[in-house]
Simulated scan of single mutants.
Amino acid sequence: MPTTSIFYGSVYGAAERLAETVCEKLTAMGHSAKLIDNPQVEDVATAEQILVITSTTGQGDLPDNLLPLFLGLQNQFPLLTGKPCAVIAMGDSSYGDTFCGAGKQFEELLIELQGRIVQPRLDIDAMVDFDPEPVALPWVEKLAEQL
């Protein structure tokens, strides 16, 4: 069974905690999953399946721990040619047009790299759902069916 590599961008730890929970959930469902700390472009290029979980900072920006990977992917542009990809975006709808901006940017980049989005992006609104797990875990169950 292919391994799902989970890349996360977190400012205050919520996205990292969610990534850990999602990794545990996928594993409990019989899937192979791993968290990627300090990700490099090569980690994305060699991943069998890609899941990005990211919070949004500032005005729709990527968290500092995920930004170098994003910029590296833009610069090196490794084609993902049909590789299964999915994104969970976390944000705050009070920011208007930049709500979940980091996840939206990462999904667009995965598409540009010819990754295959296997499930519509999940946008989690901190204004509505303080705890992201009850929203994310049913989505992850559906994702597991697509992988």
Rank of each mutant, 00 (worst) to 15 (best):
A89R: 09
L147T: 03
D37S: 15
T57G: 02
A102H: 01
P39N: 11
T21L: 13
G58L: 06
A86R: 10
P2A: 14
T54G: 04
A126C: 07
G72T: 02
L66I: 09
C100E: 03
V135F: 05
I36Q: 12
L62P: 09
G58A: 06
T27V: 13
V118P: 06
K104L: 11
L110R: 07
A47L: 03
M90G: 15
W139F: 14
L122F: 06
I53E: 05
L18H: 07
Y95Q: 02
E20Q: 14
A47T: 11
A89W: 06
A126E: 13
E112H: 11
K25P: 02
C100N: 10
V140G: 04
C85Q: 10
L143E: 00
L147A: 08
L137D: 12
V41R: 10
R17F: 09
A126S: 15
P63C: 03
Q105R: 13
Q59Y: 12
I36T: 12
V11D: 08
L66F: 11
K104T: 14
K104S: 11
A102V: 02
N38E: 15
A47R: 01
L26C: 10
S10D: 02
M127C: 13
Q40W: 01
I6L: 02
Q74K: 15
S5I: 00
A126F: 13
L69N: 09
H31I: 03
R17G: 06
D64Q: 12
A28R: 07
V44I: 06
M1F: 07
C100V: 04
E20A: 12
A89Y: 03
G13T: 02
T98L: 03
L147F: 10
L143P: 03
D61I: 03
A19M: 05
V44P: 14
E20S: 05
N38F: 13
S94L: 01
P2E: 09
P68G: 10
Y8G: 05
G60A: 01
A144M: 02
A15W: 09
F99S: 04
I111D: 07
D131L: 07
T57I: 02
L147D: 00
S32H: 12
V140R: 06
G96M: 08
M1R: 14
G103K: 04
D131W: 06
E145W: 04
L80I: 02
L73T: 01
L51C: 06
I50C: 05
E42Q: 14
E108F: 05
Y8L: 00
